[in-house]
């Protein structure tokens, strides 16, 4: 294709946007709203997943050993567990460390009454941290088959709740995003349809003169893609500026939750959000205008 044809096509597409200012603005506003909501849901989803991941990394399965189990066997068990796919980290806690931790957590100044005795003499254990809380059951099933393990402590409720909440947030977000994009495609399709009806005479002349399908269709496709691109860029700018303020507000208002609410920095979210949003914006524009052009412009 000649550069002059590309220039002509681009000019026609841009002219059409300005010719139908109201509809173009309405389309940009709609796509902008959808991408804005998408950005918000995305930010919430990613942050929620991050928080869940943080909590997950703190959820551990604890295994205790049979009395008088040789140290070699304990080391061997630790190595076997560490090789499992579900496991991210295995930490050995000796009986002494367990007693010291218990004293610090629950006894305080009364600990001295025990003298040098260690009531948790048989409490050496492994704290096993998981890659994914949903895998806890598989791991426990395996641990029950290992010789030398006397007891397994797990936090089934926490694991199940976190896994369920994570899936729920993901599914709800995806459903809402899907609906928003369907609405966007419909609206952009309407805008392009109006553009086509306004330019019907011009299109008729183009066809009679012998313009190729590409030359007739390209300005409309381009119009849709430009509207999609602008509609995606504006909310990204808005989100960039309000994100930090929103996080600051939440951290200040809910200071008690600071240890749980581990928010991601805006740069980390935008690293993925910007390309996704721009591709979605242009994609919506392409799809919306493409559907309309196919329906209304049988050239």
């Amino acid at each position: 294709m000649r550069i002059s044809t590309l220039g002509f096509t681009l000019k026609q597409g841009i002219k059409s946007i300005f010719r139908n200012k109201i509809f173009s603005l309405a389309t940009i506003a709609t796509i902008g709203s959808c991408i804005f909501l998408f950005g918000l849901f995305y930010a919430v989803m990613v942050n929620f997943q991050n928080i869940v991941h943080q909590v997950e990394s703190g959820v551990a399965v604890t295994v205790f050993f049979e009395p008088d189990l040789p140290d070699e066997r304990i080391v061997q068990i630790g190595q076997e567990i560490g090789q499992r796919a579900e496991v991210s980290k295995v930490v050995y806690v000796s009986a002494e460390e367990a007693w010291n931790e218990f004293k610090d957590d629950y006894l305080g100044e009364y600990a001295d009454t025990f003298g040098d005795d260690n009531p948790l003499a048989d409490s050496a254990n492994y704290e096993i941290y998981l890659n994914d809380v949903a895998m806890q059951e598989d791991l426990v099933e395996y641990l029950m088959t290992v010789d030398g393990i006397s007891e397994i402590h797990k936090s089934a409720n926490v694991a199940n709740t976190l896994a369920t909440a994570n899936s729920l947030v993901s599914y709800v977000s995806l459903a809402i995003i899907f609906i928003l994009f369907a609405v966007s495609i419909f609206l952009i399709s309407n805008t392009v349809a109006i553009g086509i009806s306004v330019r019907r005479e011009e299109i008729g002349i183009m066809k009679l003169i012998g313009a190729s399908d590409f030359v007739v269709r390209a300005p409309f496709m381009l119009e849709g893609m430009i509207l999609g691109l602008v509609g995606a860029a504006i909310p990204l700018i808005v989100i960039y500026f309000i994100y930090n303020k929103a996080i600051g507000y939440v951290m200040q208002e809910f200071a008690v939750l600071n240890s749980i609410l581990a928010f991601l920095p805006v740069e980390q979210i935008f690293y993925t959000l910007v390309p996704i949003a721009l591709i979605l914006g242009v994609g919506i524009g392409f799809l919306g205008s493409g559907l309309t052009v196919r329906r209304h412009l049988r050239v």
């Binding site: 000649r2 002059s4 005479e201 011009e202 003169i209 313009a211 190729s212 007739v216």
Partner: peptide, 24 residues
């Protein structure tokens, strides 16, 4: 006539060449 009302005489005539990719 079927002329493009928003364009002048030159552009109306040039239009026939632009849409078939005639060099500028």
């Amino acid at each position: 006539f079927r002329l493009l009302k928003d364009r002048n005489v030159y552009e109306n005539v040039a239009f026939a060449q632009r849409v078939i990719s005639v060099p500028g």
